[in-house]
Amino acid sequence: MSGPKIILCRCEDVTLEEFRAAYREGFTELESLKRYTGVGTGFCQGKGCLSEAAAELAALRQIPPSELRPTTIRPPSEPMTFGQLASLEIPEPAAPEES
């Protein structure tokens, strides 16, 4: 029986310990840590954990936190159905200008 874990990312069940282990394996950027551990890739798309993960990374790397930028948060911010997407009228993109 193991004790309770410190969960960093709930959606993908990533523990703080796992995040640190990934850092020790050589993943030292937030972007690569996100891809390797799954932090911030779940249902909430990082609302629950990316700020905390970034703060932890700044501490691990001993760098000023202001050097860290967020990973890309792609729209939409919450899951949508294909039906909803299909209900959107997307304007035709303008033809690329010849340069």
């Binding site: 798309q45 609302k47 990316l50 700020s51 905390e52 970034a54 703060a55 700044a58 936190p65 202001s66 050097e67 860290l68 930028r69 967020p70 890309t72 948060i73 792609r74 729209p75 911010s77």
Partner: peptide
């Protein structure tokens, strides 16, 4: 708490981490 920043980020606002204020904030 920590600031929500997803929509400003998607609209191209630059953000940086400020743990004292809870998370990513506009620069």
């Amino acid at each position: 708490g920590k600031p929500a920043y997803d929509i400003p980020h998607q609209l191209g606002r630059a953000l940086a981490l400020d743990p004292d204020r809870g998370g990513f904030l506009p620069t």
